[in-house]
Each structure stands twice: as structure tokens, then as C-alpha cells.
Simulated scan of single mutants.
Amino acid sequence: MPTPSPPPSPSPRPKSQDEPFWIREAEREAAREAERAAKPQPLTRERIVRAAMAVADGEGLDAVSIRRIAGELKARPMSLYAHFDSKDDLLDLMHDAAVEETLVGEVPADWREALRLIARYNRAAVLRHPWLLATGDTGCPIGPASLKRMDESAAAVRELDADSAVRRALILAVDTFTLGHVMAELSGGIRRRATAAANTVRRDATTEYVQTQIDAGKLPHLADTGFTELLYNDDPESSFELGLDWLLAGAAAALGE
């Protein structure tokens, strides 16, 4: 006599009915997000500029071309010209978009704190976008963010008891110090990365050679600075803050503040 088959197991309830509502809703939102990502995104000026900035951040300004950015956006190169007339226009837009990151918003009333805050924002933006040093040197037209940046600098020294020429000189001094320090930071970072990637033996040999010269008494003043730390191990942020302290303290003393 044949053995009767066991009764079929009840079908499991759909997973979505067993899970809490918020988990099901999160899954739905993830599916909607994936669907949105799969759809072609409209080509806008902002998307073009952000894509160009990302390329410049990662590979340098020379890597930015209309063809390259169009490829990043999966668009035809000619379609980008609906948003600007030339590559120079794109560089101008990139510059102003990066300068927007330097805006502090609320400028402190105390000129020392205001200039310090602006310097910190400037340093951070240039470290994120080193190509700003180049676009700033190409005579980019002053865009909306750049004008606002100038206005914030003027606001920073508005309470300073000095004539307009002194105020402008102080702004320039802080900007010059900030950009000079950033250039040194970027240069040191490039050297360290290149040395680490190529040949640490050369760096070690150089350090050892200079140390022998110090030990022989041939470099007495360099010995007092701490050669190794001076070249390789200084904390750039601490160095920046210390130099800024000196600059602002010196300006305050000279202005009788």
C-alpha cells in the first residue's frame, strides 16, 4: 500500500509582511533611489562644474577638458557648450564655485577673529582644491562668490581704527601668508608622497648626510631648529595657526590695538 504523501507545507508569508514597516519602507526607498540613479540625469551647469572640479581635484587642472568632462557625464562634448562658450568659461565657473567654499557667512565683529576665520576657510578650500592657486593667477573674472568673498574681507576690518589703505594692506598680508603657507604644505605633501612611492632610501640618506654635517659643527644654526622635524614632521595646522598668531599680534601692536 503506497505511503501517503505528507500534506504540503504552508507557503511562507512574504518577507515584506513579516518585517517592520520602517524596514519595508527603507527597502522601497532604496529601490526608488536605484531607479532614479539608473535614469539619465539632466545635463546642468552645476553638474558640469562639479564634475570638472572632481577631475581637477584628483588629477590636476591640466586634466580638465571639454571632452574629458563630457565623458565623465556620459554626454556629447558639444552638449556642454549649451551651458558656456569655452573651456575658459568653465574654469571661471569652477573658480567661483570653489571660492564659495571660503565664505564664512557671519563675519565676527573683532577684526582679529574675523581675519583668522577667513584665513582658516581659505586654507581649507585651497587644500581641497589646489588648482585654485592656478585659476586665481589666470585672471579669472570676479564672479558672485568672489565678490562676496571680497565683501567679507572688507567686513572683517570694518571696526579697525585705520584708513582704507591700511585695512587693504592687512587683508593682503593675511591672504598672502595663508596662500604661501598652503603652497608650502602642498609642496611638502607632494615631496613626501613621491619619496614614499619612489625611494625612501634617498630620503634616509639625505637626512643622514645632513645630520653628519650638523654633528661636525658645520651647520650650527640649522642644528638648533631640529632638522628632521623642520623638513618632514612639522604639523602644518599648528604651524599655520602659530604663524597667523604672530601676524595678527604684530599687526595689532603696530596699529596700537
Results as ranks from 00 to 15, higher is better:
residue 210 V to N: 06
residue 94 M to P: 02
residue 77 P to C: 00
residue 101 E to S: 03
residue 88 D to I: 02
residue 2 P to N: 04
residue 3 T to P: 03
residue 203 R to Q: 12
residue 143 G to S: 02
residue 234 D to V: 09
residue 6 P to R: 15
residue 71 G to F: 04
residue 32 R to W: 04
residue 176 T to V: 00
residue 42 P to H: 11
residue 58 G to I: 03
residue 201 V to N: 03
residue 57 D to P: 01
residue 242 L to H: 14
residue 3 T to A: 10
residue 216 A to S: 09
residue 3 T to K: 07
residue 148 K to D: 15
residue 173 A to I: 04
residue 254 A to Q: 12
residue 138 T to K: 07
residue 179 L to S: 09
residue 162 A to K: 10
residue 175 D to V: 12
residue 108 P to K: 03
residue 256 G to W: 05
residue 215 D to I: 02
residue 249 A to G: 11
residue 147 L to E: 11
residue 49 V to T: 08
residue 93 L to Y: 08
residue 241 E to V: 01
residue 186 L to G: 11
residue 188 G to V: 01
residue 22 W to S: 12
residue 191 R to S: 12
residue 35 E to I: 01
residue 166 V to C: 03
residue 224 D to V: 02
residue 141 P to C: 01
residue 196 A to P: 02
residue 33 E to Y: 04
residue 178 T to L: 02
residue 31 A to Q: 13
residue 231 L to G: 13
residue 94 M to A: 06
residue 252 A to E: 15
residue 126 V to I: 15
residue 162 A to D: 14
residue 167 R to C: 02
residue 216 A to D: 13
residue 11 S to K: 14
residue 76 R to D: 15
residue 142 I to Y: 07
residue 145 A to K: 08
residue 171 I to W: 10
residue 167 R to T: 07
residue 71 G to D: 14
residue 111 W to D: 07
residue 175 D to N: 14
residue 119 A to L: 05
residue 240 F to P: 08
residue 44 T to K: 01
residue 62 D to Q: 09
residue 74 K to V: 13
residue 25 E to R: 06
residue 28 R to I: 01
residue 251 A to G: 10
residue 129 H to Q: 14
residue 42 P to I: 04
residue 217 G to I: 00
residue 44 T to P: 00
residue 106 E to K: 12
residue 64 V to I: 13
residue 10 P to C: 05
residue 34 A to R: 12
residue 229 E to Y: 04
residue 227 F to L: 11
residue 105 G to V: 09
residue 153 S to Y: 01
residue 214 I to T: 10
residue 132 L to E: 10
residue 115 L to K: 09
residue 116 R to A: 02
residue 10 P to H: 13
residue 224 D to W: 06
residue 125 A to H: 10
residue 94 M to S: 06
residue 250 G to L: 03
residue 81 Y to M: 08
residue 17 Q to M: 04
residue 182 V to K: 06
residue 6 P to I: 09
residue 120 R to T: 07
residue 115 L to F: 00
residue 189 G to R: 08
residue 73 L to F: 02
residue 84 F to V: 07
residue 238 S to G: 05
residue 213 Q to T: 08
residue 183 M to G: 01
residue 7 P to F: 02
residue 105 G to W: 03
residue 33 E to P: 00
residue 73 L to W: 07
residue 196 A to C: 01
residue 230 L to A: 14
residue 95 H to T: 04
residue 23 I to R: 15
residue 208 E to K: 11
residue 81 Y to S: 01
residue 204 D to Q: 15
residue 165 A to S: 14
residue 180 G to H: 12
residue 249 A to I: 11
residue 135 T to W: 04
residue 193 R to F: 00
residue 198 A to S: 13
residue 93 L to A: 09
residue 143 G to D: 12
residue 52 A to H: 11
residue 181 H to S: 15
residue 66 I to D: 11
residue 189 G to L: 04
residue 65 S to C: 08
residue 96 D to S: 06
residue 89 D to E: 15
residue 62 D to M: 15
residue 6 P to A: 08
residue 62 D to R: 13
residue 194 A to L: 12
residue 176 T to H: 08
residue 11 S to R: 13
residue 144 P to T: 10
residue 97 A to C: 00
residue 18 D to N: 12
residue 195 T to Q: 07
residue 231 L to K: 14
residue 132 L to W: 09
residue 166 V to L: 11
residue 165 A to F: 01
residue 224 D to A: 05
residue 47 R to V: 01
residue 232 Y to D: 10
residue 151 D to C: 06
residue 220 P to Y: 07
residue 56 A to G: 07
residue 71 G to C: 10
